[in-house]
Design a protein around this nucleic acid. Sequence first.
DNA 1: AGCCGCATGTGATGGATGTCACAAGCCCCG
DNA 2: CGGGGCTTGTGACATCCATCACATGCGGCT
Lengths: 240, 240
Amino acid sequence: MLSPYGMEIVESCLTCKLRADRIFCDLPATALQTFEGIKYATAYPQGAVLFVEGQMPRGIFVLCKGSVKLSINSPNGRTMIVKIAEPGEVLGLSATVSGKPYEVTAETLDPCQVNFVKRDDFLHFLKDDVQACFKVAEQLSEKYHNACQEVRSLGLSHSAAEKLANLLLEWSSKNGESSKAEPRLKLRLTHEEIAQMIGTSRETVTRLFADMKKHQIVQSKGSTLIIRNANALREIANHN
Amino acid sequence: MLSPYGMEIVESCLTCKLRADRIFCDLPATALQTFEGIKYATAYPQGAVLFVEGQMPRGIFVLCKGSVKLSINSPNGRTMIVKIAEPGEVLGLSATVSGKPYEVTAETLDPCQVNFVKRDDFLHFLKDDVQACFKVAEQLSEKYHNACQEVRSLGLSHSAAEKLANLLLEWSSKNGESSKAEPRLKLRLTHEEIAQMIGTSRETVTRLFADMKKHQIVQSKGSTLIIRNANALREIANHN
DNA sequence: AGCCGCATGTGATGGATGTCACAAGCCCCG
DNA sequence: CGGGGCTTGTGACATCCATCACATGCGGCT
């Protein structure tokens, strides 16, 4: 079966093969059954906006497939990318729980498959199921943890180089390449977007990459980046 | 009855007069009873460190009286104040839930009264009580919300003036003075600490205050600050 | 009163980086 | 193959701010 955007749809959370390794999907069968009843399986094309910061919360979006850009925007057009969400992450959770407006804007980077649950349904679900409720607390802790990392990176480093190095190290640790001598990673974002992730300008990012290439710290092959000197990167990341 | 640091101790959460308006204290009697059984009422002098970022979580600290400075520190001695916690706030919550190290360092600014609950006890408590668990989710949402504000302020503003203006407006909105024509607020922090809150240097804060005084935007009387021109402040806060 | 320690005020200076302006490269598509 | 649109690369320049180095002020303690 194919979805509108050429994706295979995972029919049910009960049979989803990805269940075991997902934070929110490994509830006991009974809870999952209830969840089945209130969720809407949906699909979005690339570039779709799930919600905008400031909107009152309509509900949660469980990301099953694809990736979603979470950003914070200012009225004057500046934008800061907070995170690229991957499958398993629950979007709009904190706003849905607290009833306050969404904190961030969520926009799909790929075609995405998403399970949507209306706020009321979700709150009832939580109040009937301690386990689910606890899972939510865990997810929120995770989100808070990430936000703290963000604050740390933004607040404690003076140079843009430091932040970029940190970002690269973080990325390479996420895809399991960090243990290798010369980790590789696919750059899925433009310089512009990377700049928005570390709160600097596009030109600065370009120049930093140029510098790093000159100093043999990284090397790029098409859209893959090879880290040739991880120690030097770590050096930069921990100040100067 | 007087505690070691000259504070009156609130004996029991059941009779605490502050209960109604506190997020975590208004559970039903039965739950509160259980909570009574696992909490340790403790008191700390000014300058005490409740926990340090990076430590494995020992449990939660419910702040009943006093205020606590939450900060993020870098190995190179730089420090960033994330928040000044007030009574009712639960500290170390997200780390305790997730089992990851504390994200921040908590240090008392006054003599403080604190209810401590060990991690294991707390987790069992949560798993037995949906309501408490939901409260925790709400608190965590709140924390996440604050962290997002922090990211917004750090990431989306270019000038230190902007951040300082934002901070002052936030403070004046918190103590209910913001509606007045000339809101007043007590400055309980030094310029150094204010600088750490907005991620800039002490000298810059001093200079910014001097500027604002010169332009009749604020005026200081001892340790109280009077905002004479809130609109000008808002102007500064929303860019430049 | 006088002194010490901390908080605040202020000038000089250099460095990092935002911004503007434009060149060059790359990719998609007709 | 050629052109338009996005991305990347690069120079020149102004600006903001961290940093250093003192001066001043203020409160408490002896």
